[in-house]
Amino acid sequence: MPRPRTEQISVANTPFYHVISRCVRRTFLCGEDRATGRSYEHRRAWIEERIRLLASVFSMDVAAYSVMSNHYHLVIKLSPDDVQLWSDDEVLARWCCLHKGPMLVQRYQRGDELCGAEIQRVFQYADEFRARLGDLSWFMKCLNEPIARQANREDQCTGHFWESRFKSQPLDTEEALLSCMAYVDLNPVRAAIADTPESSAHTSIKERISPQFDLAEAIRKQTEQQSLNEFTVPLKPLLGFEGVIRKGFQRGILFGFEDYLELVDFTGRISRDDKRGAIDEKALPILERLNIDPGQWCERATRFEATYQDYRQSRRRRAA
């Protein structure tokens, strides 16, 4: 019998989780329907952009993702303690980026005059939203439900889009984390829809090595399509690679970015009987294919820390 979600997810044991969600009947509702020939490829972009939007609103970091034709994978780091640093006003603003919010909260945000009991109720709402913004189940609810509604509107139909609730798997060691991230980033290669990781689409590794990827513009289009409130929370980068253990708080992944790329490249060359694709054994090493020297990789790998500092400073300015 399945275990309750509260028993499957414990930040005290590990903050990292592998999450997977599949379309109903595992049909190609996000890719190309082989029966009708109709393409739904654009829906993969919906999911990718929604993932990155929610990662910036919730107290979670995305370490890896891949959006396939009939399912998607996520590697998420939960950071529930971050929610406690947010003021009530910031919590309300974040939640109302995604939802209209109760009328009382809307009046409070407009600056309407409220009595003491009404203000107390607003703070109770803030406490409820604070708990939700650190909860993986709410993250997935806010991800899957809007995508399902948008797809059903496009198809002019009703019914389930996702076959069931999401599946989650704890990643309680560094080896488990790295192997899962590589598995997620190599999904298009294993499915034989991409020859190499850098040529894949809608994956975290593609985003990491493609500086031209305009996430802000992508999310702006997403919010316009779904008629969401104006997005005012600073955009958060993917969880970065910190390379070495150092004193003090470490937020990122304790592995070098260059080393991770070589790990993915090496793993992708291994043929598997249960998978259709693999990286060509004759292909150049990934760093040579990308035509980037180690010095440039070092700069890109350490750029995450500066980017994240900019994000945190922007959040502090908003709170002040």
Rank of each mutant, 00 (worst) to 15 (best):
V24M: 11
C157R: 15
V24S: 09
H99D: 12
H42Y: 04
E41H: 13
S137P: 05
Q120I: 03
E113T: 07
H160P: 09
C142M: 14
L92M: 05
S56M: 10
L136P: 05
Q150H: 12
V122I: 09
P80A: 11
L29F: 10
R38D: 15
N152S: 07
P102Y: 05
V67K: 07
L53N: 12
D82V: 08
L74K: 03
K77L: 09
A131S: 13
H42R: 07
N144Q: 15
G37T: 14
H160E: 12
R44F: 04
I147C: 05
A55I: 03
A64F: 03
E118R: 05
D81T: 13
C97Y: 09
D82N: 11
M68H: 09
G116F: 13
Q120D: 13
C157Q: 12
M68K: 10
A63H: 07
A64S: 14
D33A: 05
A151D: 05
D88F: 07
L54Y: 08
D81L: 14
A64T: 05
E154N: 10
I47E: 00
S39K: 10
M68V: 11
G134V: 06
L133K: 00
T158E: 15
R149M: 06
H99V: 07
A148S: 11
E145L: 07
N70D: 10
N144T: 14
V83I: 08
F123L: 12
W162Y: 01
A55S: 15
F58Q: 01
L54G: 11
Q156M: 10
E48N: 08
S66T: 02
H160I: 03
E90P: 02
D33K: 04
C23L: 11
W46I: 00
Y40I: 00
Q156R: 13
L133D: 00
G159M: 11
